[in-house]
Design a protein around this nucleic acid. Structure first.
Length: 517
DNA sequence: CTGGGGACGGGGCCC
DNA sequence: GGGGCCCCGTCCCCA
């Protein structure tokens, strides 16, 4: 598909981001961010009416019709119970023979709350019932809920009776739980445990009986105060939201410090007006008091009080702020305010060196880098320098620098001889988390510490051996050099070469290339 | 392909 | 806690 066609399609989608792969013929990825929300909402509606319910949970006389697929998706207990655990052939669980599951060990209110969570991604409970919910979440292997309850109760996360925690300490054949639902609500903590549901655990009572009619779920949804949006999907009252943030999981800011985790979202390493940065700014900043909130649509954690409604407008497409001059609408009033400068002619950011004036402060910042000639963003492959980071990213994405090291590295930016390469030397800072994780995983696996990217990120790489094959080609040569030459292919004897030695090798290669010609 | 401007979404600080 | 303001990173578009 041509670029023009792509633009037309993009316009037709009214701003929907259309992922296109120019290299893949006709392959278009059209995201529907509301889909998951609507799907869950409709499943919840089916649950409330008993439609297509193939599982009934009972607790002390209360009955809760539900869907086994949903329960298997949200609960490790049911996943194993139904043999839906990844890697199993389905023969281990109770499977289709179970239609009623008696869970008297979980109080009816707690079970209702957990079911409500399963279908709405929102946990709505009274504080007095927190402990019962915690117990139920632990028993059913819904760890994000257990973590949230522990967090609120102020309990330590080392409960030896917690089967989920206990199993985390046990070796597991699975490195990660790749259940998408579980990950969506618990991104930071892959769970590799199943309660021993198939064993005779007194806590669980499984009655594989058939044919009982389920009563309407008692009080299901009554405690849930929410409003409807996006075709009936729940947007819970923010005051009732309990965001997932495990007690022992560092906040994003903390993570961006010494033990940053490669997240799919960018993390700002430099904060404020440039005065921050550095270790002092990271370690010395006070802990945020504003409780992060989880978006019920995309599960993203939104930091800052009052920021969730702003974020939600990105899903609904609502643009309540309209320019009175041209009618253009914006999702945020601060963006409208900046837009109004175009009509008023106000350009509050003048360049001190030239007559240029700018609408945005960051435009001035970019502009100033032109005057200074500073190009701090250097391609690690061809060593071409850019004034802007996004230009470097575009340069790298386009793979316009297929030829390795067509330019000499700038003396001022090259690593010290024998020193471990900084992350930035790979162009890895704040860009392409997967790529970052991949390289980090490679380096970690070969003894190169990558404090910014833990092994967890590396473990997400599906085919590290393929990546090694990839980097063992022209690109890998650069990496081998940068990391000190610990090649997996046996050479491994070129550790800590200096730039002078590399230049010699370059000259040799150039000479060899000339001979070939 | 690159430089530059603008738009957009997220986070921090403050009121 | 909500909202305004600001800064940042990223993406898109155009020359």
């Amino acid at each position: 598909m041509t670029q023009t066609a792509a633009r037309l399609l993009s316009t037709a989608m009214k701003g929907r981001t259309v992922a296109m792969s120019p290299g893949e013929d006709g392959l278009i990825g059209i995201p529907f961010p509301e889909h998951s929300n609507e799907l869950l909402s409709r499943l919840n509606a089916q649950r409330r009416t008993g439609l297509l319910c193939d599982l009934t949970l009972t607790s002390r006389g209360a009955r809760y019709p539900t869907h086994r697929s949903v329960m298997a998706a949200v609960s490790l207990y049911f996943r194993r119970l139904f043999g839906a655990e990844e890697g199993e052939d389905g023969g281990e669980g109770v499977g289709d023979s179970c239609s009623v599951c008696q869970l008297d060990c979980v109080s009816p209110d707690a079970l209702a709350a957990l079911l409500e969570f399963a279908y709405t991604a929102t946990l709505t409970i009274r504080s007095s019932g927190m402990r019962e919910v915690l117990k139920g979440a632990q028993l059913l292997g819904i760890q994000c809920v257990a973590d949230a309850c522990r967090d609120i109760l102020g309990e330590a996360d080392d409960d030896p009776t917690d089967p989920v925690k206990e199993a985390e300490r046990l070796p597991s054949r699975r490195k990660q739980d790749r259940c998408s639902v579980a990950r969506a609500v618990s991104p930071a903590r892959p769970v590799s445990f199943m309660p021993s549901a198939s064993e005779d655990t007194p806590e669980y009572g499984v009655l594989p009986t058939q044919g009982r009619e389920g009563n309407p779920p008692p009080a299901a949804g009554q405690a849930h105060r929410g409003l409807l949006m996006n075709g009936g999907a729940h947007w819970p009252n923010e005051s009732t939201m309990i965001p997932y943030r495990p007690e022992d999981t560092p906040s994003e800011e903390e993570e961006s410090g010494a033990q940053g985790r490669a997240t799919p979202h960018h993390s700002q390493s430099q904060q404020g007006d440039g005065g921050g940065g550095g270790a002092a700014a990271v370690s010395g900043r006070k802990r945020k008091s504003q409780t992060p909130q989880q978006c019920p649509v995309c599960q993203k954690i939104i930091h800052g009080a009052g920021k969730l409604p702003r974020h939600m407008r990105t899903h609904t497409g609502e643009k309540p702020f309209q320019c009175t001059a041209c009618g253009v609408r914006f999702t945020r009033n601060d963006k409208l305010k900046i837009h109004m400068r175009k009509h008023t002619g106000e350009r509050p950011y003048p360049c001190p060196s030239c007559p240029a004036r700018f609408l945005h402060s960051y435009d001035l910042k970019n502009h100033l880098s032109l005057h200074s000639g500073d190009r701090p963003f250097e391609c690690p492959l061809c060593h071409k320098a850019f004034a802007r980071e996004d230009h470097l990213q575009r340069h790298r994405k386009g793979h316009s620098c297929l030829e390795l090291r067509t330019r000499r590295p700038r003396r001022g930016t090259g690593p010290e001889p024998g020193a471990s390469p900084p992350l930035e030397s790979f162009g890895l800072h704040q860009q392409h988390p997967d790529h970052m994780s991949a390289v980090a995983g490679l380096l970690e696996g070969h003894g190169i510490p990558m404090p910014g990217v833990p092994l967890l990120a590396a473990a997400r790489m599906p085919f590290p051996e393929l990546l090694w094959r990839a980097v063992s080609g022209p690109v890998g040569k650069s990496l081998d050099k940068a990391e000190g030459g610990s090649s997996p292919h046996g050479s491994g004897s070129v550790a800590h070469r200096t730039w002078e030695e590399e230049e010699e090798e370059d000259e040799e290669q150039e000479a060899a290339g000339e001979e070939e010609e």
